[in-house]
Amino acid sequence: MTAAAEGSPAFGMTRARRNALLQSEPVQGFALISPTFLYALILLVLPILVVIAHSFWTQNYLTIDRTFTLENYRVALTEPIYRDLLWRSLYISLMVSFFTVVLAYPIAYFISFHGGRHKSLWLFLITIPFWTSYLLRVMSWKVILGYNGVLNSGLMGLGVIDEPSTALLYNSSAVIITLTHAWAAFAILPIFVSLEKVDRTLVEAATDLGDGPIRSFLRVTLPLSAPGVISAALIVMIPTVGDYVTPKLVGGKDGVMIANAIQAQFGKASNWPLGAALSVTTMLIVTLIAGATVLILRAAQRLAR
């Protein structure tokens, strides 16, 4: 007995303490998560509250005037330049999430239904480019689409065009192409997860009852994977609205987005309250659009059944 207890000297005591602590499991769990929770509170929630507060203030040169005003929101919503930028950012992010989801669905379907033993290898293969620097991926599109770029010089070499086309780079299409490529992996994963959950016997049942492959897909698989499609659309749409690097590198004048205007307010233009109001407006609008997308896709899912 003494020999056995040697490795753990405080045998009786720790056990008693352990039992006492185990009874307050919630306390223990909360205590364990509190450092991370506090970190997120102090560095995420508090800063966002500060941004919201700033959006109701005004700035005189370097001092902030803290009287409540809605002037910044009036500017953000009615000045043509900001209104246009907001609309364009929304348009681009909607297009990007549409294209990423449509392009990603077949590949997620392929991996889930025909991936066989190589499922995780396929997933790895598809997520790897996503882990490389975002800046570098945008840069490589600049190299491809540029005036002296890969596509132009390649097409000229093949004799398809006589002189380099300027239509490829520095417009919103270039932004859409680049973002669609950059966010591909993010859309595949949620769709794949929801496809994995689809009960295969239901698909078989539909086939046995006389549905062809397309009908059984449209009436069974697609509606059942709708949650994955919804989260894929949101997970692409929300961050792309505020993208800064892509419009700056490949967007040109025609592809400027709201994030570039926000950055300008915190940099050169130095109007923090207006920048804050633009940020809050962007967040609110994208939340509304995201909510609307969820409702529309759910309604479509119900109709499909």
Binding site: V51, I238, P239, A259, Q263, A276, S279, V286
Partner: peptide
């Protein structure tokens, strides 16, 4: 959106 995270931290 990353820009929101970035500017809110910057402000604070």
């Amino acid at each position: 959106p990353e820009i929101i995270v970035a500017i809110s931290l910057l402000l604070v």
